[in-house]
Write a protein that binds this DNA or RNA. Structure first.
Lengths: 241, 241
DNA sequence: CCAAAAGTGTTATATTTACACCCATGC
DNA sequence: GCATGGGTGTAAATATAACACTTTTGG
């Protein structure tokens, strides 16, 4: 016997327009990398019963936008950037996850460069702060679970896609890049092997510039070459660390 | 300036309970493997304007269940199995994707063994059919896009997780397994290298049984050893094809 | 001259690829 | 006896892992 819960079109219409509606939100785990540590941008929560907690940045999805668009809107509002990297991670839909009613949320993670422009943008806002991921131990709602799931996805993606660059300044040294991988993946990498590997991928361009005013031998600077990467990708190349 | 669209708790309550509600559904791409081909289970669609099309199996998410539970419910109703492999893939939320109103859908793919029990279960149902993936060129709603996204995810997962076994009978030959990988990934594999690789992973147990009544030398039969796999996974082993 | 990071090669090991023939069974 | 898939090993090429010292700069 087939149990078919969709009886007919009238029951569909009733259900879509009345019985089975839920609020849908997006929640963004916004990753930034600064001072050799991976941070997330979080906000003071103003909703009971979580008034004294911190929470991820999110909002309800409006009737006229997709969830991707809603996530972009939240990102633009909170970081001031509209070209951030966004990755849809997972839906969280426990029936009791939100105190005010049924809210199904779509989790995204995003990668931003924490630079001076950006810090100026959020600087005046008392409700926003960057906090090292490994120091975030409690958040409102089910946001800790969302954060952990997004962190695992970031770790996986970092090994499979050239996205680490999105957390670094446009110009970076190879050691900076190595440290980023070490911090996020929580592993130790061999300097010589790492450099050989990255160079052999052929997706970095050496800029012919060097670091300035560092109290050690200045490193030469590199940038990620998006065009070459896209070309290589089309001919079957795949990034793998 | 920070644009904060969440003004206060009263506006949240209004939005959650009225303004910004949507229907949420799940859609399942149910993969089965039969007769050396990858198939999906689809249904005749009974909703205008798609009455003459085929569609994925799905339903609205009920107020008292998570999306995972809704997907399980759909699977149980349509296939009769309650222990199927389910993987949440992605949200599809175009504002115009559903003719009857705003319906945000969560796509899942699942893997089932097409066996006699199962065929008996759906046999009498005129609305359900198994169709080879590569012959499905049009579906109702945005279901073609959902199917393609799920197929790509399946292909990726197949290389990273030992899930191919879920599409095969409990006992299988190494060639059956190889054909499955070849068909789903659309590649050609070397017999000797494939066998060496799979055996070296140590997650197959040789059953000491052989095929019966085949018109060629009978192959010995293997089974996936879930326990050993789980043990190896805990100690850092990762499946990779 | 000291501290700090930059930069550079070689060797051993493990993994991957390519490749061809005889075997057992049913008809 | 023939068609069909079952089953096996080796060598070459490639990729990975381990490892230590000299160089350049600022202070």
């Amino acid at each position: 016997m087939i149990v078919n819960s969709i009886q007919n079109i009238n029951s569909w219409i009733t259900q879509i327009h009345n019985d089975f509606k839920a609020a849908v939100s997006v929640d963004c785990v916004i990753f930034g990398y600064d001072d050799s540590s991976l941070k997330i941008l979080i906000s003071r929560c103003d909703m009971p019963p979580y008034e004294n907690e911190l929470s991820l940045l999110g909002d309800l999805v409006h009737p006229d936008e997709t969830t991707d668009e809603a996530a972009k809107r939240v990102l633009l509002a909170k970081t001031g950037f509209d070209d951030v990297y966004l990755d849809q991670v997972q839906v969280f839909s426990s029936t009791d996850r939100h105190p005010l009613g049924r809210v199904i949320t779509v989790a995204y993670y995003s990668l931003v460069k924490i630079d001076d422009d950006h810090l100026a943008h959020i600087g005046s806002n008392d409700f926003l702060l960057w906090k090292p991921v490994y120091e975030v131990s409690s958040l409102a709602f089910d946001h800790i679970e969302i954060m952990q799931t997004c962190l695992r996805k970031l770790q996986k993606q970092l090994r499979e896609q050239p996205i680490g660059f999105k957390l670094l300044p446009k110009k970076f040294s190879l050691l900076q890049l190595q440290r980023l991988y070490e911090v996020i993946l929580n592993i130790k990498l061999d300097k010589r092997n790492f450099r050989r590997k990255l160079k052999s991928l052929g997706i970095l361009k050496e800029l012919g510039e060097i670091q300035e005013s560092v109290s050690h031998r200045p490193a030469s600077l590199y940038a990620f070459d998006e065009k070459i990467y896209e070309k290589k990708k089309k001919s079957g190349f795949s990034f793998e660390l």
